[in-house]
Structures are given as C-alpha cells and as structure tokens.
C-alpha cells in the first residue's frame, strides 16, 4: 500500500515512545552507567572505562556459558524446526479435529515457565516421575541432578515439549495459506510428495519459518526460568546458560559492573543476529511484493 507522508503521525506514536522510554530506555541507560563505573559501596561511583568489558571478554566462566548457550540454541533449532514442520504437515486441515489439535498443541505455550520446569523436574525423578521411573526400570542409571549429560537431555526434551508447537502452528498457518490450485497443478504434473514439499510447500512457508527460527533463536538464547527450576544450572555448571549466569552475577553476587557489561554484550549479540534475520525477512517481503 502506498503510504502518505505525514510527520504528524508522530503524535500517534508518542504514547508508545513515552511508555517504552520509561520501561526500556531508562533501565538500559542505568545498565550502561554501571558498565563503565566502579564502586566501593555507599553509592560512590567512579569512572572505570572499558575495564569491565575487558574482564568479561576474558572471563573463562562466561566463555563457558556462551559456548553452552550456543550449543543449546543450535540443538533446539535443529530439533524443533524439522519436527515442527513435520507435525504441521500431519495436522488435519479443517474441521473439529483441526480445532482439537490446535487447542491441545497450544496448551504448553500458556503454562507459566516455572510450572513447565516443575512438571519436568517431577517427571524426571526416578521415585515419583514417569520418565525417570521408566528409564531406571529399563536399566539406565538415570540421575539428572548428578549427570551432566542427563541434565542436558531433560532440558532439551523439556524445551522441545514446550516450544515445538509454536513452530508447528506457524508452519501450519503457512500451509493453510497455499491456494488449492498449486496442489492441483502439481497433481497434473504428477509431482512426487517430496517434490510438492520441496517446490511448493517449503517456499510458501519460507516467511513464517524465518519468523519461527528468529523467535526460537531469541527465546532459546534468553532461556532462564525452565532450566533454573529443573537443574538450577547444575550439575556443576553443566546447564548454566547465559541468563542464569547473569542473574547469579547481578542479583546473587551484586557484581554490578561486570554484570552490566555482560548484559550489554549479551543484548548486542541477540540484536545483531536478529537484525540479520529482520533484514533478510523484509527483503523477502519486498521480493514477494514485486
């Protein structure tokens, strides 16, 4: 749609600006403030320059957390995106069952995150949980509180349970918007199932899939509550991801300077990756518009 040039539109945006300035800009400036200052207590601050940034960049503990975080996001994307697409392809297209599937699948998305953590914490226990009990009955020495690998398994399975539906619902919506004519044309060409998927469904889902990848990347990169409830970042630091480390640093030890510097860089990494996605997405929109 061709839009009218009108700078008075700023008045309509003003309420958002005021609100977001209060709830985002002021806190962010506080963070910037802490990131470049040091204190000996009593609210006396002095200039520390980029010292904290150097500390954070050379801190082994944060390197470890970053590595685990990247591995976690990569695993999550590698499982959830293909699984989500597969589930979307298997969903009924319309009618009562489509509604039933939709509602049941959306259910995990609306459970408070700490309850998700609690559910899986219980499920993984060998004495009272279904998953832990079954695994130990099968002869596996299952103990996610002691074994790092087991902790990873339960955190990943939990996230798959929690968020795959989002990918599936997005992909499903993308599939719904494909006109029947495309399938009829494919039928006339006697295209195989794989070719229909590869040349019709996948390109048509491209837009929503990019959004799904973006959302899953962002949210898995900021994950805090669920692993915190299940494993508390342990055993040792096996599942302590960036947010868990950051909260420990900021609210637990009150190391304001390093925590603030860490926050800023953390935010920038997410911003950078998201900006790349956003640019790709808007370019795709334009290409489709032509």
């Amino acid at each position: 749609m061709d839009k009218v040039q009108n700078n008075k539109a700023w008045f309509l945006v003003l309420p958002v600006l005021v609100l977001v300035a209060f709830s985002a800009v002021i806190p962010l400036m506080t963070v910037v403030n802490y990131a470049v200052q040091d204190t000996f207590g009593n609210n006396v601050f002095f200039w520390h320059g980029l010292g904290w940034f150097q500390d954070v960049l050379t801190d082994d503990r944060i390197h470890g957390a970053l590595g685990r975080q990247l591995a976690f996001s990569a695993i999550i994307l590698a499982i959830q995106i293909p699984l989500g697409i597969a589930v979307a392809l298997c969903m009924p297209k319309r009618g009562l069952w489509a509604s039933v599937c939709l509602v049941l699948m959306a259910l995990p998305l609306l459970i408070p995150w700490n309850v998700v953590g609690t559910i899986w914490q219980i499920l993984g226990r060998t004495d009272i949980g279904l998953l832990g009990y079954s695994l130990s009955e099968l002869g596996i020495e299952w103990n996610y509180a002691r074994n790092g690998l087991h902790a990873w398994v339960i955190v990943v399975v939990m996230d798959v349970w929690h968020w795959t539906s989002l990918v599936a619902l997005l992909a499903y919506a993308g599939l719904q918007s494909i006109p029947q004519a495309y399938y009829q044309a494919a039928k006339i060409d006697q295209a195989s199932r794989w070719k229909v998927f590869r040349h019709i469904e996948l390109p048509k889902m491209q837009g929503v899939l990019l959004i799904a990848i973006l959302l899953r990347f962002m949210d898995s990169f900021m994950i805090y509550t669920e692993p915190f409830v299940v494993t508390g970042g342990g055993p040792g630091s096996a599942t302590s991801f960036l947010s868990i480390d950051l909260v420990k640093m900021a609210l637990g030890q009150f190391d304001l300077g390093p925590a603030a510097a860490f926050s800023l860089m953390y935010f920038l990494v997410i911003l950078l990756v998201s900006w790349v996605f956003y640019t790709v997405m808007t370019n795709l929109d334009k290409a489709e518009g032509k």
Binding site: A24, V31, L251, S263, F267
Partner: peptide
Amino acid sequence: FWLLTNRMAPPAVFALP
C-alpha cells in the same frame, strides 16, 4: 525496528535496573 529490539531484550538484562 527499535521497538522490535525490545522484544529481543533478555529479561535478565533488565531485572536489576
């Protein structure tokens, strides 16, 4: 885009401020 970046901000960053 700036508005959208707020959706991308990790809550952990904002907890203390």
